[in-house]
Design a protein around this nucleic acid. Structure first.
Length: 883
RNA sequence: GGAUGGUUAGCUCAGUUGGUAGAGCAUCGGUUUUACACACCGAGGGUCGGGAGUUCGAGCCUCUCACCAUCCACCA
């Protein structure tokens, strides 16, 4: 590779394409298994194979990449596993919809043909989201790409299922489950989303069979009246006490049913009497079992009224409700319609209203696995931010068994068979050919597949080759950290912990970092349907991947959601460009030779000492920030250093050096090269493309890849707090003159004269040494440094750290303006002094505050008094000019 | 109903054992100072949601109220 020169403007597109290709062709991010380095591993939260990269993925990817690249820089053996999830319902829906456009349903094709179609779809479009992840520059190991339906992962799934079954942790049974009539499958409790909706309570009169009275029942689902098999009241309820044990007539169907009593009923709600429909409500299901009631199923698997519904059979549940309400009204038993707000469960994939539906399903006894998973936090697994720990506990403490069977075709088919002859249930890792009990070959595999999250729960070890005891597994399990959003804490994180504990005898990750959800400017969750989404690919096209990455990193404060807008990304594009131009400036001055290195102890000039000192601080601070997962702090520390210190001051200060002596040039070249190189390395985890591009353009780096370089080591000998303070003093002096210029509206081109009156010998020396900088940066033509100098009356002055700075204004401007400025400044000082003296005159403060605080306040008071005295003198002098 | 987070400059947000309120963007004024107008120099702008308490001292700790989010549970 030859040296590639930096064009005048940063062109993200070409640069990103170049490096992406290079990294992939060289397998740059495939770990060296022979190395003895400390392992560091992350598994990607596998996005749905149907997915399109959204901004949340981009955040998730960026943070993981920052961690992975940083770990690599620390010399660790890093593995970051990429892959996708087969996403049962979503994918099946997508393919079904596509087929429907051709007028074909999956039933027309049959299971086998349909699955072929899904696989074909996956081959064609399933790589899309990984393709998009590539655009972000994620340093994953592409040679280890996984899919939850890969052969080996399927093997893992079967082994896990069989083992859990043998351990009595998987069981099969008939239960009322959440059923999506549109997707035509069961859903787990946490796959049901509750959304508030306007509804009604219909008050319906039920007559007692013996004619001795009636009970008014309030129901929000009148269509289920058809399936009523009891009326339930609270045991001691005065209103209904005498009715318990009698029979009551269900209207419409005229069915006599028992009146039962159960503490489950809430006396306060509605009329305090509950109609019981065991087949269509989970609570009623329990009542039905406990009280041995009749189970009458009036709604079928498609959400339509069944044969049991008599004349209503065939109607949709919505149409039936309408009709029944009319009929009840006609019969005169509908007494009242009360509007209510309640929440309705909907399918998290298609938003169809969930129907509680009794059916035979498979369950994982998560109630038994939960206590151990709970105990792992925080002793073995640290959840960050810590506040999520409580949420995690809360969920596990209230967990119910996990329904894992789905009535879909796309997914891991349940490895269970039933013998048609003897009804033996066979659960096996390998496909059986005959019944082990009766020897019959008439065996049928269970038609259901497993919940997508079942295979996802195995992801940390299945991707590494389990159940084989592979090198990957030995080296990289448990993984170092899991980075994810909180919305899948339950779906995924908790279940991975359970499975890891059960099958690996070890937790799957040591830390869980929960990052923010990305919202729009108004705090709304970004979504395609709301139309407020920011497409990361668009942003990359417009501003570059680095700009997007830096933005996301800078916004990733712990425990807070991110409100993102395009302007923010554009803003950080400026930062990338700033870095680019700083590098161009450096290259211009450095030439083509790598500067000759020198011992840092021989770096004598104040500005070099200062920037090297600051670089050390930045190394430490940014590292500490990242170790604490304070990504935003890390980004900000680097941003400010690069822009406000390196560019705004250091590059300006060395302009003179490059016009100066050979010695000056050599020193400046060496320090500039060092600081730029190391800053690039520090920034690299956040903005890999631009830093790599600049790096390879630096003399001596031809053909090298910054992604493979170690993080610059600390150099304690470069820490020079004292010299750093001195540099800041010089900056303050220059700033003061600039402020005077600006406030008095002095043309920038006009060169001025100034008198500095240092407060000490030390200050004098510093000022003398910095004379060229002050003259250049403050645009002076004449500078006197002398404690005894007397500034002319016509001058504007200011006090910096005890030294007076006077800008001579001889015939330059309006003196009233300067007087006004002085007065304003004096006002500020007085306000400060009042505050401090109020404190110091407070006996309690002096007596009780720590001595250091009191001393500090006293010193501040002295400083301000000194400043005040000097400025009052100036004011006086100035007034004399005006007279 | 239970829980969590938030309320700080016009906007988006930092603020680490309580000790001088910060940044970026936006605004305003000025600038062809040979890396960068995606820039440079400078300025203005906050009774830290309301109230009470603890303390010498509160953006930070306690209580309370309000509003905005979010999660969990759910009543027929």
């Amino acid at each position: 590779m030859s040296v590639r020169e930096l064009p005048k403007a940063y062109e993200s597109k070409d640069v990103e394409t170049y490096w992406r290709k290079l990294w992939e062709e060289n397998n740059t991010f495939t770990p060296d298994m022979d190395s003895d380095a400390e392992p560091y591993s992350i598994v990607i939260p596998p996005p749905n194979v149907t997915g399109v990269l959204h901004i949340g993925h981009a955040l998730n990817q960026t943070l993981q990449d920052v961690l992975a690249r940083h770990a690599r820089q620390k010399g660790k053996k890093v593995l970051w596993v990429p892959g996708t999830d087969h996403a049962g319902i979503s994918t099946q829906n997508v393919v079904e919809r596509a087929l429907l456009k051709e007028g074909i349903s999956r039933h027309d094709l049959g299971r086998e043909k349909f699955l072929e179609k899904v696989w074909a779809w996956k081959e064609e479009y399933g790589g899309r989201i990984l393709e998009q992840i590539r655009y972000l520059g994620s340093s994953v190991d592409w040679t280890r790409e996984r899919f939850t339906m890969d052969e080996n992962l399927a093997k893992a799934v079967r082994k896990v299922f069989v083992k859990l079954y043998q351990d009595d942790l998987i069981y099969k049974g008939k239960y009322i489950v959440n059923w999506c009539p549109r997707c035509h499958t069961a859903l787990a409790d946490d796959e049901v989303e509750h959304s508030p909706q306007k509804g009604a309570l219909w008050h319906v009169k039920y007559e007692l069979e013996d004619g001795s009275g009636h009970i008014i029942i309030a129901t929000s689902r009148p269509e289920t009246i058809l399936g009523d098999s009891a009326v339930c009241v609270y045991p001691d309820d005065e209103r209904y006490k005498d009715f318990v044990g009698k029979r009551i007539i269900v209207p419409i169907v005229n069915r006599p049913v028992p009146i039962i009593a159960d503490r489950y009923v809430d006396k306060e709600f509605g009329t305090g009497a509950l109609k019981v429909t065991p087949c269509h409500d989970p609570n009623d299901w329990n009542l039905g079992n406990n009280h041995s009631l009749e189970f009458i199923q009036v709604i079928d698997d498609k959400g339509n009224m069944s044969e049991e519904a008599g004349s209503y059979a065939g109607l949709t549940r919505e149409a039936c409700r309408e009709q029944i309400v009319k009929d009840l009204d006609a019969m005169g038993v509908l007494l009242q319609v009360e509007e209510i707000d309640h929440s309705v469960g909907t399918c998290y994939r298609c938003q169809t209203v969930i129907e509680p539906y009794p059916s035979i399903q498979w369950f994982v006894a998560t109630t038994k696995l939960a206590p151990k998973a709970r105990a792992a936090v925080p002793s073995q697994i640290e959840i960050l931010p810590e506040t999520w720990t409580k949420t995690y506990y809360n969920w596990l403490d209230n967990i119910r068994d996990w329904c894992i069977s789905r009535q879909l075709w796309w997914g891991h088919r349940i490895p269970a068979w039933t013998c048609a002859d003897c009804e033996e249930l066979i659960v096996s890792e390998t496909d059986p050919t005959k019944c082990p009990k009766c020897g019959s070959s008439h065996i049928e595999q269970d038609p259901d597949v497993l919940d997508t999250w079942f295979s996802s729960a195995l992801w940390p070890f299945s991707t590494m080759g389990w159940p084989e005891n592979t090198e990957d597994l030995k080296t990289f399990y448990p993984t170092s950290v899991l980075v994810t959003a909180f919305d899948i804490l339950f779906f995924w994180v908790a279940r991975m912990i359970m499975m890891g504990q059960h099958f690996m005898d070890e937790i799957p990750f040591k830390q869980v970092y929960i990052h923010a959800l990305v919202r729009d400017q108004h705090g709304k969750k970004m979504s395609k349907s709301a139309g407020n989404g920011i497409d990361p690919i668009d942003m990359i096209d417009k501003f570059g991947a680095d700009a997007l990455r830096f933005t996301l990193t800078a916004f990733a404060a712990m425990g807070r959601d991110i409100r993102l807008s395009e302007e923010r990304i554009e803003g950080y594009r400026h930062f990338v460009n700033k870095l680019w131009n700083a590098a161009r400036f450096a290259l211009m001055n450095l030439g083509t030779e790598k500067p000759k290195s020198m011992p840092f102890s021989e770096v004598k000039s104040l500005h070099h000492q200062w920037i090297l000192h600051r670089l050390e601080e930045v190394k430490t601070d940014s590292e500490n920030a990242l170790n604490a997962y304070k990504f935003n702090d890390m980004a900000q520390i680097l941003y400010k250093f690069l822009w406000n210190e390196f560019c705004d001051w250091y590059l300006e200060l060395i302009k003179g050096d490059f016009k100066g002596s050979d010695e000056q040039k050599a020193e400046a070249s060496f320090v500039l090269y060092t600081v730029l190189s190391e800053t690039l390395a520090l920034l690299h985890p956040i903005i890999p493309f631009v830093t790599c591009e600049i790096w390879q353009a630096l003399p001596g780096n031809e053909g090298t890849d910054l992604a493979l370089e170690l993080r610059p080591a600390n150099r304690p000998e470069c820490l020079r707090p004292k010299e750093s303070e001195q540099m800041i003093y010089i900056q303050d002096c220059i700033g003061t003159i600039r402020t005077i210029r600006s406030e008095l509206n002095i043309a920038p081109a006009l060169k001025l004269s100034a008198i500095f009156r240092p407060d000490s010998e030390e200050q004098k020396n510093i000022l003398e040494a910095s004379r060229p900088w002050i003259m250049f940066l403050a645009r002076l033509e004449n500078l006197v440094i002398d404690a005894d100098a007397v500034p002319p009356k016509a001058s504007a002055s200011h006090v910096v750290q005890g030294s007076e700075i006077a800008v001579i204004l001889e015939g330059v401007l309006d003196f009233n303006t300067e007087l006004a400025r002085l007065e304003k400044e004096l006002g500020k000082i007085e306000k400060e002094l009042n505050g401090i003296s109020a404190k110091l005159s407070n006996e309690n403060f002096v007596a009780r505050a720590p001595e250091a605080v009191v001393t500090q306040e006293k010193e501040r008071a002295l400083d301000f008094q000194d400043k005040q005295t000097k400025m009052l003198a100036l004011q006086k002098r100035f007034r004399e000019v005006l007279e």
